[in-house]
Amino acid sequence: MSRFAMVIDTRRCVGCQDCVVACKTENSVPQGYCRDWIVEEVHGAFPTPHLEIRSERCNHCAEPPCVSCCPTGASHVHDFGGVVLVHHDLCIGCKACLAACPYDARFIHPDGYADKCTFCIHRVAKGLDPACVSVCPTHCMHFGDLDDPTSEVSRLLASRTHHTLLPEAGTQPRVFYLT
């Protein structure tokens, strides 16, 4: 078994959106939509604000509410690395999963089905990194298997402080942010 995860170093990230545009070309994401995006979070006041920049996407949660609410089984957890995916042909476009995702990571593709980040599973299956990871000019993104203690993601999580998004939502995200 493997559990794929992404570890993103917010210290290195400059928020350039290369991950976004790489995803758009790799996955032919239609114009006006995105599967990943940049969030800038500012705490404090000038002249001593604190800024965290994050590349966000589907968190491929271990407890995915989008999967449990799906009436047709279109949203599912894939055996390969526990990635959360959508069968386009099973999806009826009811949008329950969009409403169920606390991260608003999904959207309705113009062709009618729910769509989102796939962790570029088609690339991962070929031994490549997801497009966003492979393109990042700051090398702030890492992809790998949490079940492999020697993987880069496991090592980074063991050695650096990190957080996930909305852990209180109980979804157990698999995208981690190093601080």
Partner: peptide
């Protein structure tokens, strides 16, 4: 201050 570059329709 929270800004996002996401602008997905319906979202």
């Amino acid at each position: 201050e929270l800004t996002t570059t996401r602008h997905n329709p319906l979202i």
